[in-house]
Amino acid sequence: MIATAIAFYLFAGITVAAGFMVIAARNPVHSVLFLILAFFNSAALFVLLGAEFLALILVIVYVGAVAVLFLFVVMMLDVDFRDLREGYLQYLPVGALVGLILLVELLLVLGAWIVSPDAAGFAAAPAPAISDVHNTRALGQLIYTQYAYLFQAAGLILLVAMIGAIVLTLRHKPNVKRQVIADQVGRTRDQAVEMKKVEPGQGL
């Protein structure tokens, strides 16, 4: 028990410190490396809890694919972070509004969960023994029954984060021709096809 507690506090402390360094590091490459460190220690915490499936998924999917992809993208993109820091104040009202809306939605979800008459029954439901239900099935039952709303809220937060990352890094070059979907969809046959009458002997 003492060794387990020491390992838990060690991995938890490193995870919290690495998470703080992700947002505090000035170099984005260092931030991604700290994120990988946080993922590894989170996987170790899942192993201590007996959730080996989550630990393997965290290492294989997030560390092996997502975090490494982030690292390559950050290293290959020529993004001037000084310009991004100078212009962030103009997006501050919109960002504050979006954050306020998300906060209200999360509070509504949490309040509905607390005042729901079925919440007490879900919380008091006895958990089956580990030997009766294997890891993956138990995880699915928890996520899609008791924590379904929280699971949807986490997906919404990830969607907002993805859109924010695209907006922050998307830069339009003035001399590059862009694709306009509305013009392509609204184009008629007369605009796309032109009939030419070629007389004999006037062809190529």
Rank of each mutant, 00 (worst) to 15 (best):
K173R: 13
A3G: 02
F70M: 12
H172W: 13
L35E: 07
L156T: 08
I157F: 14
T169A: 13
I14N: 00
L56K: 00
R187C: 08
L35A: 07
V193C: 02
A165H: 01
L84W: 01
K196Y: 13
L84Y: 06
A182Y: 12
L150Q: 11
V198N: 00
E194G: 03
A161K: 05
A129M: 09
G50H: 04
R85I: 10
S42T: 10
I14D: 06
D118I: 03
R85E: 15
L10Y: 13
E86P: 01
N175W: 07
I23S: 12
N27Y: 04
Y149C: 05
L97F: 14
D83G: 10
L102S: 12
I36V: 12
G19S: 14
L100E: 15
R187N: 09
P126R: 12
F46W: 12
R82F: 11
F40V: 09
V16N: 03
I2P: 02
L150G: 09
Y62E: 00
I23Y: 11
A124S: 13
M75E: 09
I181E: 15
P200D: 02
M195A: 13
K177I: 11
V68W: 02
G87C: 10
L103F: 14
L58C: 10
L110K: 05
A7V: 04
G164D: 06
L170S: 10
L168Y: 07
L92V: 05
F53N: 03
N27F: 06
V198A: 03
D78G: 08
F34G: 00
G64N: 03
K173S: 14
G203V: 03
